[in-house]
Amino acid sequence: MIFKMLYKFLNIIFSGKLKPFAFKIVPPLFLIILILLIWEIIVRSLGIPDYVVPTWQQVISELYMKPMFFIEHSLITLMEAFSGFILGMIFSIFLAAVMVHNNLLERSIYPIALMLKVTPIIAIAPLIVIWLGFGYSPKIFITFLITFFPILINALTGFKDVDNNKYRFFQILNASKFEIFLKLRFFTAIPYLFSAFKISIPLSVIGAVVGEWFTGNSGLGSIILVSNNELQTSTLFASILLLSLIGCLLTVCTNLLEKKVVFWRYNIFID
């Protein structure tokens, strides 16, 4: 009976107008359901205690029982991640714009930026907390540090990757460096910037969580820390799930925005 209904349902959604949507949604949805089933079977059959691995129903009920608690802390983490990312984005684009016009400055700044990138953020985090205190600022600053390098490198590459013919055309028009930057370099770099955003956005969530671990009074990172200490594994799982959802949400939004902004890359030539 269930299989018959499922077959009918799949037949409906895989035909007609819903077909392209179904091809995108149904396969990952089935995989998620399969993972949940395997999770449930393993936990029940092996008798794993819920402080080690809870069942997925326990995780869902945790979210259902304390919705406002999770929404409040999720919003804090989201705000920290987003603020740090925006700060990193503005600073990186500005720095890349300066670097592309000055070789000496590029050669001077690049090693410092690289040093910051390769130093584990978790090693610098305690220092940042000492310097900036226990408010939002250290978390936002840690997020800024973790996100700015990929954007800086991609922005710099994009600003440099100007088509030679287009550049010559601007020169023929006696365009100033500022006009060339504003009307040519910046737009050329937009696809590169979106590629960087796709790397930096998940990093921004990591940055916010690391910051919360060290300041530990609000946000999903601090909940993870507290629930881990108190062996409240279902709360811990619920927080991890929400962090994944925040990362996915931000990435999906970036992808949608990219298709709108960089429209010329997603269209087929009629030639």
């Binding site: 055309f169 023929i172 365009a175 006009e179 010329w264």
Partner: peptide
Amino acid sequence: KSIGMVFQSPAILPWLTVFQNLLLPLQIN
């Protein structure tokens, strides 16, 4: 502004319409 140049791959900007591309030289000068 007495020299014009045409290239093998035209120097048109993909984020602008045909009209906006033709207007570009007049916006710069």
